[in-house]
Amino acid sequence: MTDSKKLPGKIEESDDGQILFSVPFPEELSPEALQALKGMRPIIIKQPYAIDYIHSYGQDSPFFAGLAGGTLLGCRDLETGYTYANPRSHDMYTGEPTDWVQLPEQGRIHAFTVCHFGSEEFLPQTPFVLILVELEGADTLLLSRLVGVDPDEASLDWIGMPVKARFLRNSKFKPTDVYFAPSE
């Protein structure tokens, strides 16, 4: 170590983040005081945590490109004709690659719920209606949102209701780029 280079003798302190300037603590650490620490209430702090992910839709990307263009795409096994209302590049029964097919915009409600509460991200949107839609020519269902019904009037009669796809004009490249409304 050279005399000419001054190395820090302590870590520089900062004013950012969470600071508690004085913590209640025994003045003297007598054996009794040390024992009493076991009865101390826990220190509970807030730890923020935020991340931006770089999320690729990978082989499912055409589905989202389709939604952006106002088209519902599904995937079909060529041999069996089995058709998924979701992107799925390999069939789960034949193991073979599927082909993209255009799906109709008309469908029927297979099941639904009205969410009066939700995950934190969606809480401001409550109440919202979730549906699983049956699309003509598809063997599986599509999860989506339904508008145009009164969330306070939920009824089993909604099942079977004909619905029509609508698309966001400004695509967010999310599955919510498509949603459904009762068809006239």
Binding site: D60, N86, T113, C115, F117, F122, L130, I131, L132, T176
Partner: peptide, 22 residues
């Protein structure tokens, strides 16, 4: 599924409730 299900309104009680209505 965070690509296809979660963004639609990810909420397990909602998923189960759809099973219930069916």
């Amino acid at each position: 599924d965070v690509s296809l299900d979660y963004p639609v309104g990810g909420f397990y009680s909602g998923y189960y409730a759809m099973m219930v209505t069916r």
